Amino acid sequence: MAFELRVHNRHGNRIDPVPFLVSVGLAFMLTMSFGPIYGLSYGLALSTSLALSAVAFCGLVAVAYAQFVRSAPPLDAGPLPPGPRFERLLYAALGIGVALVGLTVPLL
């Protein structure tokens, strides 16, 4: 018996859960690797740093759920036109670039 994850958008249509799962995995990796280090460098206790990282992770999961699950078009809707796809890709690349630059800035 194969495991099948059934995820539905707000209209009740089944969607592909892979983009959501990948983004949640990346969010976990980034928040739990950078968050405690930054918290400790600002003088917070380890437990507080981990708790704040977990809160940030939960916020990112909520945003990813809203973007990739709730507002997702159904699989049979066909591909998006190239204009909006490129615009979403551009915004995602800019957001990731800003986040990475912000994480690499030395702490003062």
Rank of each mutant, 00 (worst) to 15 (best):
M1I: 13
C58V: 15
V105Y: 09
Y65P: 00
M1D: 07
V18W: 07
G97K: 12
D16S: 02
L94A: 14
G102W: 01
G95L: 00
N13S: 14
Y91L: 15
T31C: 10
L100T: 04
F86A: 15
D76Q: 13
F20M: 04
L108W: 08
G43M: 01
A66W: 06
S41Y: 12
L44I: 07
T104D: 02
L60A: 10
F68E: 03
A45S: 11
P74E: 00
P106S: 09
T31S: 08
R88I: 03
H11P: 04
L107R: 05
A64W: 01
T31M: 13
G102C: 05
A51L: 15
F86S: 12
L107K: 00
Y91N: 11
H8E: 13
L108F: 11
L107N: 07
G102K: 09
A66R: 05
R6G: 07
V101I: 12
L80A: 14
S47T: 14
A93K: 01
R14Q: 10
L94M: 15
G95K: 00
P79I: 13
F34A: 15
C58W: 14
R14W: 05
V7Q: 00
A27T: 10
L100V: 06
M1T: 12
F57S: 02
R6W: 09
L80Q: 15
G102D: 01
Y65F: 15
L21N: 00
G43W: 04
H11E: 02
A99W: 03
V22Y: 04
E4W: 07
V101Y: 11
R85Y: 08
Y91W: 11
A56Q: 12
V61M: 06
V18A: 08
A99V: 04
L44G: 03
S33L: 10
A2L: 14
P19H: 09
L44A: 15
A54M: 15
V101M: 09
L21H: 05
A72R: 02
D16K: 00
Q67F: 05
F20Q: 00
F68R: 08
N9Y: 01
F3I: 13
